[in-house]
């Protein structure tokens, strides 16, 4: 996960790119003629200071390597935020980023 967190005017802005294939389960492998099984992020949460500040729920129509931008009030330079996603197969991705 690539994460950039900036603090300006008392607002913390988060921009992130989560590396993930986001397979819909509807695509067909042209060589084998078989369906490629679904694999997509279902939930992504962001925590700051022990508090959940953002939850994203995704379906299969979010693009490959999902991009997200959001912002919340408070935070300060040097603080960290914790990000975590889980997909439909039970895989989990985590990242921590410092507010700059």
């Amino acid at each position: 996960m690539k994460v950039k967190v900036k603090f300006k005017n008392n607002i913390t802005s988060v921009r992130l790119l989560a590396k993930h294939p986001m397979e819909t389960g509807r695509r067909i492998n042209k060589k084998t003629g078989e369906k490629i099984p679904a694999k997509y992020i279902q939930e992504l949460t962001c925590k700051h200071d022990g508090k959940v500040v953002f939850i994203a729920q995704f379906g299969t129509s979010v693009s490959q390597d999902p991009y997200l931008a959001f912002s919340f009030e408070g935070g300060k330079k040097g603080d960290t935020i914790q990000l975590r996603w889980n997909d439909n197969t039970g895989d989990v991705g985590r990242a921590e980023a410092k507010i700059k």
Partner: peptide, 22 residues
């Protein structure tokens, strides 16, 4: 499947979100 994404906005989080969809 029409529902693409849903974001929870707790108090203190700004109602301003961007993403990329199919």
């Amino acid at each position: 499947q029409p529902l693409t994404a849903s974001f929870s906005i707790p108090a203190g989080t700004r109602a301003d979100v961007s993403t990329r969809i199919r």
